[in-house]
Design a protein around this nucleic acid. Sequence first.
DNA 1: AAGTGGTCTAGACCACTGG
DNA 2: CAGTGGTCTAGACCACTTA
Lengths: 249, 249
Amino acid sequence: MVSPHAGAAPLPLPSPTPGAPYARVKQHLKAGLAAGRWVPGERMPSEAALVAEFGVSRMTVNRALRELRSEGLVLRTQGVGTFAAPLHKVSSTLTIRDLQEEITSRGHQHQAVVHVQRAEPAPAALAAQLGVAQGSEVFHTLIVHFENGVPLQCEDRYVNPACAPRYLQADFTRSTPTQVLFESTALWRAQYSIEAARPTAQEARLLQIAPAEPCLVVVRRTFSHDAAITIARLVHPGSRYALEGQFTP
Amino acid sequence: MVSPHAGAAPLPLPSPTPGAPYARVKQHLKAGLAAGRWVPGERMPSEAALVAEFGVSRMTVNRALRELRSEGLVLRTQGVGTFAAPLHKVSSTLTIRDLQEEITSRGHQHQAVVHVQRAEPAPAALAAQLGVAQGSEVFHTLIVHFENGVPLQCEDRYVNPACAPRYLQADFTRSTPTQVLFESTALWRAQYSIEAARPTAQEARLLQIAPAEPCLVVVRRTFSHDAAITIARLVHPGSRYALEGQFTP
DNA sequence: AAGTGGTCTAGACCACTGG
DNA sequence: CAGTGGTCTAGACCACTTA
């Protein structure tokens, strides 16, 4: 047969399962895993076995298995075999969205009030984290974000000037620091810390909440290669904001 | 040439870049994106162009591009082309680990105290969320987890009996509810909500904290297919616990 | 030595988009 | 129509593990 499609019968062929062959193989295995057909750690059919079972080429079943592995559903070891992944590791991932994107996607109005936008000498601890000389100037912004007039986030941010020399020229009532910083930078990595804490006196005032109200505090450090780009402290009133996410294996 | 390797020159050939060809193509594009060679939204080389440039087969560049898309770095549209992904979406993912795993991986001691472990008639709201008849019995556990003797998490959990009939027989001082529930279930999905809030009076007492201390509250609903397995409210003292995570594109 | 996964190729057909 | 991505194949060579 010259090609998989050229050789197909001219009839519409009641396809056993719709979709591309690699997807059918993948779906079959996924269903088996969901049904507990293979206990975690148990050996699963080899590529050769699946080739025989489905009558497809090895590349096709290989792709199905490769994707299942990238989804964390199976473990594969060269020379050994494919195994159902032990799902004991209940670590999962949560999606964090950009606040402004979140607000506008809800169809609500986003508004930003800029309280600080200037260069400042960096305190020692901060200078170390940003990787700049102690006492050298860094950019500092303090912005409060509103959703339909309600203060939702207090964003206290320091930026490494070497990474974004024009940062202070931006109009943060129109675009957000995130947009300004990352519109040109393509690849970066970030560290998060999420905790519950009381706001500082200033934060309570800016967010118009009681000083004792619990707040969700996200600290985000962003790096490009090894240079630190920015450190942000994002404070949200606990009564008005929750991080939500989904996880599907 | 019969095979890519069979046809290779007998010389060791100073390989231009180490690694598999598809990985080289992928890495080349990734580096270009990191360097800003293509502005977000800009058109990138077609598969045919990359085939010519790297002297590899189309399947190979296709795999590289497919993986880049699954990593969210490029967008592809059939009949149109491949484009650098707009990085405006600064949504990122955060890893949530199982608390017990976290404690033991720190080399610390984990301890659990069980305060409630019984079947109860489900309140209306809960019955709806678990998808059981109102007033029917559900399993309820209330467990406090300690790290080296310090209370770190108050776990209030309801379980759908149909999904785990033997749940109440477990010894939760030895294994955790998570382990008991998911040692057999292979595929599931979960919804998270993370917020800052004050503890209830009972929670404050169990966690040995002041009633006004901010707490990090994680509510996790877990489903299998469409049946709800369990709903858990995990309360952590803000002063003792933070969720931490990394994000790399 | 046999079995397994990891990878590559050359060429093919298809569906879709755009001019 | 030409160009693009989406997919499949049959066969190949390799590295690795296990017996």
